[in-house]
Amino acid sequence: MRLGCFLLFVGVLFGAPARRAKLVVYPENPLLFGKGSTQRLVVQFVSADGRSIDVTESAKFSSEEPEIARATFCRF
């Protein structure tokens, strides 16, 4: 079994100006066990005043190491 790390980039387009807002990806450090196993991700937009919005639907995922982990889009 190959072990490896990968980085995932998530980008979301927002109309509103985001002041010190951040994007949080859940789970934070997923570990995948077994080739072909999958892990769903949820992306939350957290605004400066602490409000959070589920933006998974409008997020674009890409993997830095597609050989290790691939990001695909699937509906829940």
């Binding site: 769903r40 949820v42 939350q44 602490g50 409000r51 959070s52 589920d54 998974t56 829940f76």
Partner: peptide, 12 residues
């Protein structure tokens, strides 16, 4: 914290 009636959040 969900904001607005009908707003949704997925849980993993």
């Amino acid at each position: 914290v969900l904001i607005g009636e009908g707003s949704k959040q997925r849980l993993l």
